[in-house]
């Protein structure tokens, strides 16, 4: 007697992004980085990364320079508040691609 499969008969979720949809659409304010002030960007070396540390969503990359994934960034502003050099400003979200601006 074989066991009946129970696969698919109970709630079983697999990992992946975007459970809440494109959470970037939640934003009213958007973080914009000024690489002229950003320490790793200026020094061209791994340094600081406080924005990466404190981002609740993990959408700031730990790279030189750090970049923000606007698809999921909720615009909380913690990165701007915590940046020690004021390299991140929260600007009004216009809905345009930041690269265009």
């Amino acid at each position: 007697m074989t066991n009946e499969a129970v696969t698919g008969k109970f709630s079983y979720s697999r990992p992946g992004p975007g459970d809440g949809g494109r959470t970037g659409s939640w934003r009213v304010l958007k973080p914009v980085m000024d690489y002229g002030r950003c320490t790793p960007a200026r020094k061209q070396t791994e340094a600081c990364f406080l924005c990466w540390l404190y981002c609740p969503e993990g959408v700031i990359s730990r790279e030189v320079p750090p970049t923000i994934d606007y698809e999921y960034c909720k615009g909380c502003g913690i990165c701007a508040e915590q940046c020690p050099t004021g390299a991140i400003q929260m600007v009004e979200e216009t809905g345009k691609d930041p690269k265009e601006e």
Partner: peptide, 24 residues
């Protein structure tokens, strides 16, 4: 068949909506 396994991470018995929903 399915059990808690770091090799096969999944979330068991989480909130399930009233309506069917697509997976990834």
């Amino acid at each position: 068949e399915r059990f808690l396994d770091p090799e096969n991470p999944a979330n068991f018995n989480t909130v399930t909506l009233p309506e069917p929903r697509p997976d990834l």
